[in-house]
Design a protein around this nucleic acid. Structure first.
Length: 431
RNA sequence: GUGACCGUAGCUCAAUUGGUUAGAGCACUGGACUGUGGCUCCAGGGGUUGUGGGUUCGAUUCCCAUCGGUCACCCCA
């Protein structure tokens, strides 16, 4: 094989594509029903936008970005996530003048230079949802509920767990106070931490909470809990969020270790996880980022959002025959025998397609046997719901009629050419 | 970035301790069946055995490198 796709990217072939269409369709239905509007964004932005929003010290910015200089000398980057670009658009176009919250969603490819493995690709796809300009906890709960609803509609909710946490905010009496306490505790037990955590302890202590190594976990069991340090604003905010979730009957667990890797998160964070995808257990994740819009030069609007990993969702969906996801439209297979018949059938195909019927036309040079076989194979492969075949050969032409054959029963009858289109339309989807 | 396992037709897989023209099923094309499908039978096309090097009289098989895949660490969707 001399020609290859680039490492870590993948093609979505037609059979798999049916699942993607379903995921995207249901996403749009659910998000629309919660009052969100779709926004389409470029897949690359100026590099500093990501550096500023995601955080200079994060793994994403440090080593995972596809960054290059364009011909004009500007440093641009293929987006590693969608929030930064969406907020850029929000600020740039003054979308904040509308009544809050502003609810937006987008979907498309993201790029991160990582070592590929199960459920992890260098080009992957996300559904991204953001609600901007409102910090009321009912919005947090609604966003999470909408995410759960999306998975319910895909019949996947039962296989996922909702984990939530509150990270507090940068108020001195909140997360900073906790961070100080945590570092004090970790330093006291540094000898029992893994090498990495000893470094993380100084650079980004909260991430130590996420470490899965047994030795670190033992130390962390006795560590102070962030939840006990939430300030007088953040504690009730989290409490209310949970109340509203319970009011909606959303089942969740509080995961004190849920820290997440992007710097901008404050207060509510959440993840939907599964045990079915190997090490990549997060199917969707998100949280609140109240200071970020201002940091990027916009108004001091709060925000909350999440991203869904489409590849991971698709992997959870059961395999089905192609075409089974959508209502297959009735199909007609037109079989001309000879060039004159082809010329006569071509406009018929056009008229039927205009009425929403799927039409396949033979080219007139293949044997009738082969064309009928092909019609059957298409049906079998679920690529086309062929219900009728139309046969038009020299004999039929001479009589000014065509044969309409029911592919299920095999029965066929002659129909005048002048009424052929109407007849096929009248048959509609019926066999 | 680190580690483990794997790479043979489009797909799923064979190929005796290294042995000569690398096979099969499915799929595809054509024929049996001058204009009536799904079945059957026959035939055909398709491979630089991922790539490069080495050992050997001889390599799909053994060794090294490289690329890719898979999985895990890391990180996350």
């Amino acid at each position: 094989m001399t020609i290859h796709a680039v490492r870590g990217v993948h093609d979505i072939l037609p059979g798999e594509g049916e699942k993607w269409r379903r995921v995207e369709r249901i996403a749009r239905e659910v998000f629309d029903s919660y009052g969100y509007e779709e926004i389409r964004l470029p897949i690359f932005e100026r590099t500093d936008l990501f550096a500023r929003s995601i955080g200079e010290a994060t793994d994403i910015v440090q080593k995972e970005m596809y960054t290059f200089e364009d011909r004009g000398g500007d440093s641009v980057t293929l987006r590693p996530e969608a929030t930064a670009g969406l907020l850029r658009a929000y600020i740039e176009h003054g979308l904040f003048v509308h009544p809050k919250p502003i609810k937006l969603y987008t979907m498309g490819p993201m790029f991160r230079y990582e070592r590929p493995q199960a459920g992890r690709y260098r080009q992957f796809h996300q559904l991204d949802v953001e609600a901007l300009g409102d910090e009321h906890p009912s919005l947090d709960a609604e966003v999470i509920a909408m995410l759960v609803e999306f998975f319910r509609r895909l019949d996947l909710a039962e296989r996922l767990q909702v984990e939530i946490n509150s990270l507090g905010d940068e108020n001195p009496t909140c997360r900073p106070r906790y961070r100080t306490e945590l570092v004090r505790y970790l330093r006291a037990h540094a000898d029992r931490l893994c090498d990495e955590c000893r470094e993380r302890m100084e650079r980004n202590p909260l991430r130590v909470l996420d470490c899965k190594k047994p030795e670190c976990r033992r130390v962390l069991d006795g560590a102070p809990a962030l939840g006990d340090f939430l300030c007088e604003d953040c504690a009730p905010h989290f409490g209310k969020t949970r109340e509203y979730l319970e009011a909606m009957g959303i089942r969740y667990v509080v995961s004190p270790r849920l820290v997440r890797g992007l710097d901008y998160y404050v207060r509510t964070t959440f993840e939907l996880t599964t045990t079915e995808l190997g090490a990549q257990n997060a199917v969707a994740g998100g949280g609140r980022y109240d200071g970020l819009i201002k940091l990027l030069g916009g108004p001091p609007d709060p925000g909350i959002g999440f991203a869904v990993g489409v590849e991971r969702v698709v992997q959870l969906l059961p395999d089905v025959a192609q075409g089974a996801w959508q209502d297959r439209r009735p199909g007609v297979f037109l079989i001309p025998l000879g060039d004159e018949a082809l010329r006569r059938l071509l406009p018929v195909a056009g008229e039927l397609r205009a009425k929403g019927i799927v039409v396949e036309v033979g080219h007139g040079e293949r044997k009738l046997t082969r064309e009928l076989e092909r019609a059957s194979k298409l049906e079998e492969a679920k690529r086309l719901g062929v219900l009728h075949a139309v046969i038009l050969g020299p004999d039929e032409l001479a009589r000014g009629e065509a044969k309409v054959k029911d592919m299920k029963s095999g029965a066929q009858r002659a129909v005048p050419l002048s009424g052929l289109v109407d007849e096929l339309l009248a048959l509609g989807g019926r066999a």
